[in-house]
Computed example of a mutant assay.
Amino acid sequence: MLTALEVFTTVVVGVMVGVEFSVAFVVNPILNALPEDSGQLGRAHGGRMLGAVMPVWYLTSLVLVAVWAVIGRHDNGTGLVVTAGGLLLLSVIMSILLLVPINNRSKTWTPENRPADWKQQSNRWDRLHYIRVAIIVAAFTLLVATLT
């Protein structure tokens, strides 16, 4: 049972990391290179779509890691799992306090109603997202290390 939980949790977190990595290093650079207002409209749509899914994914990942830590508390590597859970918790707190407010604004923007500083706000979101990606990659790495 614990092995199945470990593998399932690692896959769930790993796929989440992959999505967030691709947003940071593939999707947003593509959107930023589009002409005129296309990129901003694409980011707004992505903010709506991923903004609905990612909170559930982050919290599910955190809960799965917490369950793994509790069930496997007597196994070697539990410290790595707890540290990974702490990093995922940090990513959730960072998301709620820093990224979600920007996303909630930007997902409603159109070329007609966006604020004058919309590019600066988008760039701030990107910078914060890079930090969040580094945090969840570290958490994923710890989970994988625990399995070896």
Rank of each mutant, 00 (worst) to 15 (best):
Met1Gly: 07
Met1His: 09
Leu2Met: 14
Ala4His: 13
Glu6Gly: 15
Glu6Gln: 12
Glu6Lys: 08
Val7Trp: 08
Val7Tyr: 11
Phe8Ser: 14
Thr9Trp: 04
Val11Tyr: 07
Val12Ile: 14
Val13Ala: 08
Val15Lys: 02
Val15Asn: 03
Val19His: 00
Glu20Gly: 02
Phe21Val: 03
Ala24Asp: 04
Asn28Trp: 10
Asn28Ala: 08
Ile30Thr: 10
Leu31Glu: 07
Ala33Thr: 15
Leu34Asn: 14
Pro35Lys: 05
Asp37Tyr: 07
Ser38Met: 13
Gly42Met: 05
Arg43Val: 10
Ala44Gln: 03
Gly47Cys: 06
Gly47Phe: 10
Arg48Cys: 02
Arg48Phe: 09
Met49Cys: 14
Leu50Lys: 08
Gly51Val: 07
Val53Lys: 12
Pro55Ile: 13
Pro55Lys: 14
Val56Trp: 09
Trp57Pro: 05
Leu59Cys: 14
Thr60Arg: 10
Thr60Asn: 14
Leu62Pro: 02
Val63Phe: 11
Leu64Trp: 04
Leu64Thr: 12
Leu64Cys: 11
Val65Trp: 13
Ala66Cys: 11
Ala66Trp: 11
Ala66Lys: 14
Trp68Leu: 13
Ala69Ser: 13
Ile71Ser: 15
Arg73Leu: 08
Arg73Val: 12
Asn76Ala: 14
Gly79Ser: 05
Val81Arg: 10
Val81Asp: 05
Val81His: 14
Val82Arg: 06
Thr83Ser: 02
Thr83His: 02
Ala84Asp: 00
Gly85Phe: 15
Gly85Ile: 15
Leu87Val: 05
Leu88Glu: 01
Leu88Lys: 02
Leu89Trp: 15
Leu90Lys: 03
Ser91Trp: 02
Val92His: 10
Ile93Glu: 06
Met94Val: 11
Ser95Tyr: 13
Ser95Pro: 04
Ile96Ala: 13
Ile96Ser: 09
Leu97Pro: 08
Leu98Asp: 13
Leu98Cys: 09
Leu98Arg: 12
Leu99Trp: 04
Leu99Pro: 03
Ile102Met: 05
Ile102Phe: 03
Asn103Glu: 07
Asn103Gln: 13
Asn103Trp: 04
Ser106Cys: 07
Lys107Leu: 07
Trp109Ser: 00
Thr110Asn: 04
Pro111Gln: 04
Glu112Arg: 10
Glu112Val: 00
Glu112Met: 04
Glu112Phe: 00
Asn113Glu: 04
Asp117Ser: 12
Trp118Pro: 05
Lys119His: 08
Lys119Phe: 06
Gln120Tyr: 03
Gln120Arg: 11
Gln121Ile: 07
Gln121Trp: 04
Arg124Ser: 00
Arg124His: 00
Asp126Leu: 02
Arg127Ala: 02
Arg127Trp: 01
Tyr130Glu: 01
Val133Asp: 01
Ala134Val: 04
Ala134His: 01
Ile135Ala: 05
Ile136Leu: 04
Ala138Ser: 08
Ala139Cys: 06
Ala139Val: 06
Leu142Met: 02
Val144Trp: 03
Ala145Trp: 12
Ala145Tyr: 15
Thr148Ser: 07
Thr148Ala: 03
